[in-house]
Write a protein that binds this DNA or RNA. Sequence first.
DNA 1: GCCGTTTTCGGCCCGACTGTTTTCAGTCG
Length: 574
Amino acid sequence: MRNKEVAEKLYELAQYLEILGEMRFKINAYIEAARKIENLPLPIEDLAKEGRLTEIKGIGEGIAKKIIQYLETGKIDKLEEAKQKIPPTLLELLEIPGIGPRGAYTLYTKLGIKSLEDLKKAVEEKKIREIEGFGPKKEENILKALMDRKKKETRRILLGIAYPLSQYVVESLKNNVQIDKIEVCGSIRRMKETIGDIDILVTSNSPEKVMDYFTSMDIVKEVVAKGDTKSTILTNEDIQIDVRVVEPISFGAAVQYFTGSKQHNVKIRELAIKKGFKVNEYGVFDVKTDKRICGEKEEEVYNILDLPFIPPEMREDRGEIELALDGKLPKIVEMKDIKGDTHVHTKYSDGENSILEIVNKCIEFGYEYVVIADHAKSLGVAGGLSIKDYKKQKREIDELNNKFAGKFRIFFGCELNILSDGSVDFSEDELNIFDICLAGIHTGFSQEKKKITERIIKAMKIKEIKIITHPTGRLLGSRDEYEVDLEEIFKEAKNYGKILEINATPERLDLNDINAMQGKEVYGLKFSIGTDAHSLYGLYDMRYGVGVARRAWLTKEDIINTLTLEEFEKFIKD
DNA sequence: GCCGTTTTCGGCCCGACTGTTTTCAGTCG
């Protein structure tokens, strides 16, 4: 699938055109097309081959031609032309807050600045302030931004870090100041895999007390801004958190606005205009009289546009609004639908807790079952188990199952390692002792695409293996996915009736939302959501896996661990 | 450059903030 690659080219082209001062709407068209491709659950190259590119809303004749040219030759004429006009290193300047495309172009034409290096020199020589439209203040800000750059490179943080942190702030605020309503917004609420900053909205009678308390919390390293109704802090880990107090009458509209995504909101506002309304963060207004119509509750914003409430995780402008207009919004899976965890490690291998401890936690969650799936012997570093070890573990599981009979069920599983030749740790005969076998790649990530793909397919042919764990092997922020032909995997998974895992560990979230969406839409696959927990704490990661599933528009029926104990038992025997 | 149960031409989201301005462009989310 070359979607990401093609999207990036179009984004790049848009950036060049922006700097060159091309018409805003033209640029937006490229960005919009790129975004569509990025979110497309089909390989763009297939659509191109079939001449169906213009079926995608936002791609017309012009962009379709450019995509085809890129796919065939690796180049786009228009992009190459742009590169002749401005040096590619000029794009670096856009990373500086306060310098946009117009600013970059001015700096280039007036001062010949071609890169961050040049910019730094010009700032030091105080040349920036002499250009029209710039001044001493701007120069100072650029200098500051250049100095801060290393810090800023910490970039986006994992949902698994941001989510608990946001909950901590919410709980602290609730417990210490008078809060009426409170909601975490932004990409956390949409359960995006990584988060830029944390946005929290509240209504309160005493905004100043909220601001005082928030800016003096123990997590605060630096108070970036403190106002009457909005404050920004940096935590010790350099995570930015904004808290804003809004009027109760605007709370719903503000939550809608700050939840995003930006593109979703643009579509909502466009729809509003067609219906004679204006939507902003303060409410929904009649465009003629400017009279407020609603905005206290978030669902009102949708309902006034004849839309049902759209779950935050779906708000990415991937077609959810059109679907909602048609009354075809799927009922996506919820946390309460989850009846068990399909992937948990214990201290038999590299986990921290005993089976009993895990069972008790699962019961606390209201689960009906859990799949214990410790590593097998070939994964020495993770304390992989031999058949003898597994048999010992089985005895303990049997005992516990007797003890919890009628209340909870432990499935005796394993997580096999798909070796470099596609074989697994044990023979098929040996695999018979397990209730369910999982298998995943844990070594040999750097093999070429064909080989890795064949490896996984070979493992899928083993009858006892039901679930392929973390199918792409990525670790967010540290390791890219290995080269794997996912479409081929999807096809064969369907063929052999295998389940692909949505691994809920925050560093993995693998499959990701787009992959899972493609797996369902195109191949009709089913998935398991497993935490891959190595401790009791890890069991809580289920919410992130469910978040991915919701972002992929999966329903309860698409996820095997929403099955009841009875159904699940039957399912894994088939 | 794209799009159309109000349009094949004339539109294309909204508001705040900043720094530079004397009415606004650029940037940001």
